[in-house]
Amino acid sequence: MSHEARNLQWLLQNFVEEVHGVRSVAVVSSDGLLLLTSQTDQDPALARAPSGDRADLAAVVSGLASLTVGAAKLMDGGRVRQTTVAMADGALFVMSIRDGSLLGVHATADCDMSVIAYHMALFVGRAGHVLTPALRSELRQAMESAR
């Protein structure tokens, strides 16, 4: 992997390790393909989860983003910046990255939503200018070869 790809993976892993309540994180391309993923090692339930769960997160993130973009168009709401879904046993956050890609975060129910949103914004700010078409292509190929 290139230096930029390794740095992006490092940023994603730091996000998971440093932000309380984060279970897993995915960067998804604008066409719904998983580019990067990371998950915590501290959750025993996730340690037993099949690797397909990462692809599931990417699919949910892509679908939710598509739904909210459609809703925003219908309501003349402008560009969707962030979507938050609070559930009884967890939370899901989706934030747009400048190039059309998405950052999705699956978190525990006891997470501090404002802290997660803040760290997502930091990641998006750092990743937005780096996520070029060439890097997206490299990340896609790396995800495909890892399967």
Score class of each variant (00 low, 15 high):
residue 99 D to S: 13
residue 121 A to K: 11
residue 82 Q to V: 09
residue 88 A to D: 15
residue 88 A to N: 14
residue 15 F to Y: 06
residue 122 L to T: 07
residue 42 Q to H: 04
residue 53 D to Y: 10
residue 75 M to Y: 15
residue 39 Q to I: 02
residue 123 F to C: 00
residue 138 E to V: 04
residue 68 T to P: 00
residue 68 T to G: 03
residue 101 S to I: 02
residue 37 T to N: 09
residue 25 V to I: 03
residue 53 D to G: 01
residue 6 R to S: 11
residue 26 A to R: 06
residue 43 D to R: 04
residue 14 N to E: 01
residue 146 A to R: 12
residue 71 A to C: 13
residue 63 G to P: 03
residue 62 S to E: 03
residue 14 N to R: 13
residue 19 V to N: 00
residue 88 A to G: 06
residue 8 L to A: 05
residue 7 N to W: 00
residue 128 G to H: 01
residue 20 H to P: 03
residue 38 S to W: 05
residue 129 H to W: 07
residue 37 T to C: 14
residue 31 D to L: 08
residue 25 V to D: 03
residue 102 L to R: 06
residue 116 I to C: 14
residue 46 L to G: 03
residue 61 V to N: 04
residue 126 R to E: 09
residue 67 L to A: 15
residue 131 L to E: 03
residue 68 T to M: 15
residue 105 V to M: 10
residue 99 D to M: 12
residue 118 Y to E: 15
residue 113 M to I: 15
residue 106 H to A: 03
residue 129 H to E: 12
residue 24 S to A: 13
residue 34 L to K: 09
residue 70 G to E: 15
residue 57 L to D: 07
residue 77 G to I: 12
residue 111 C to S: 09
residue 58 A to Y: 00
residue 11 L to I: 01
residue 137 S to Y: 13
residue 80 V to S: 14
residue 101 S to Q: 11
residue 128 G to P: 00
residue 147 R to T: 14
residue 141 Q to I: 07
residue 77 G to Y: 14
residue 1 M to C: 06
residue 36 L to V: 12
residue 89 D to C: 09
residue 119 H to Q: 01
residue 60 V to E: 11
residue 86 A to T: 15
